[in-house]
Simulated assay, not measured.
Amino acid sequence: MATKTSSEIIKDGLWNNNPALVQVLGLCPLLAVTSTVVNAIGLGLATLLVLVGSNLSVSLIRNFVGESVRLPAFVMIIASFVTCAELLMQAFTYELYQILGIFIPLIVTNCAILGRADAFASKNPPLPAVLDGAMMGLGFLAVLITLGGLRELIGQGTLFSDMHLLFGPMAADWTVRPFEAYPNVLFMVLPPGAFIGLGLLIALKNSIDTRLEERRKSAEQAPAATGSKRVRVTGNIS
């Protein structure tokens, strides 16, 4: 297995192999809690912590765990870090923890985390494994925030409401209201709105990838076309 460079790991986590938009993993919590930005950030940070910690731990023990107990060991490691994230949220952001509810413990079953532990961390040294976990977590967090912002803006006409649940009293006045007397669109706050929002984000990413690929092909064909013209001109002169 060829070792990926740091730039490739970063690009994979944030864009090329984004766990939400490309791998389409972890959709249950992603769709359930992204009704507001603060919920999305809370879940995203917890997932990021678990991804980094579990990738590091799995990489450290990769040469000492037999094939027969490999997956159970990975699940135990992930469950331990989820418990740590859960206790931290109970201690410092208890109201947000109550809102997110069962979706914090359910991080254990997130296929994106177990998938990275098995596919990457178990085959690579600690530093690349930590970078992979961080980038995958940041990519997942970015999608959560984007979807949460989209649903909150269209559904409630606000952005960054209730941020004090995560950042304390200093964030009490962070709420942005772009529209006056906005009629709430309940549909976007409900589960169907989450599916439509995620579908739009996936479609947007695919459209951007298609345009980038077309530009790359055009850039590759341009020098070849120029070279063939020069050959024809030279032949006419001779």
Rank of each mutant, 00 (worst) to 15 (best):
S35C: 04
S35M: 13
S35I: 00
S35D: 15
T36S: 11
T36G: 02
V37M: 13
V37G: 08
V37T: 10
V38C: 10
V38N: 09
N39L: 12
N39I: 08
N39R: 03
A40F: 07
I41Q: 05
I41V: 02
L43C: 01
L43E: 09
L43K: 07
L43R: 02
L43T: 09
L43W: 02
G44L: 06
G44V: 05
G44P: 04
L45Y: 03
L45V: 12
L45R: 01
A46T: 12
A46Q: 09
A46F: 10
T47N: 10
T47A: 13
T47Q: 07
T47V: 15
L48C: 10
L48E: 07
L48R: 06
L48Y: 01
L49D: 08
L49F: 15
V50Y: 10
V50A: 07
V50W: 03
L51D: 12
L51V: 03
L51R: 11
L51P: 00
L51H: 11
V52S: 10
V52K: 05
V52E: 11
V52H: 00
G53A: 11
G53K: 02
G53F: 02
S54I: 03
N55M: 02
N55Y: 00
N55V: 04
N55R: 04
L56T: 10
L56M: 06
L56K: 09
L56W: 06
S57L: 15
S57F: 09
S57E: 08
S57M: 14
V58I: 05
V58N: 11
S59V: 01
S59M: 12
S59A: 14
L60M: 10
I61V: 15
I61C: 14
I61Q: 07
R62Q: 00
R62C: 01
R62V: 00
N63C: 05
N63S: 03
F64H: 14
F64S: 13
F64I: 06
F64C: 09
F64G: 01
V65R: 06
V65G: 06
V65F: 03
V65K: 02
V65P: 05
V65N: 00
G66M: 01
G66L: 01
E67R: 14
E67K: 12
S68E: 15
S68T: 14
S68F: 10
V69P: 12
V69D: 14
V69C: 06
R70M: 08
L71V: 12
L71R: 03
L71M: 13
L71S: 13
L71T: 15
P72N: 09
P72L: 05
P72D: 05
P72G: 10
P72M: 06
A73V: 15
A73N: 06
A73P: 00
F74I: 15
F74T: 15
F74G: 13
F74K: 13
V75T: 08
V75M: 07
M76V: 15
M76E: 07
M76F: 13
I77Y: 01
I77W: 04
I77D: 07
I78R: 10
A79R: 11
A79Y: 00
A79Q: 05
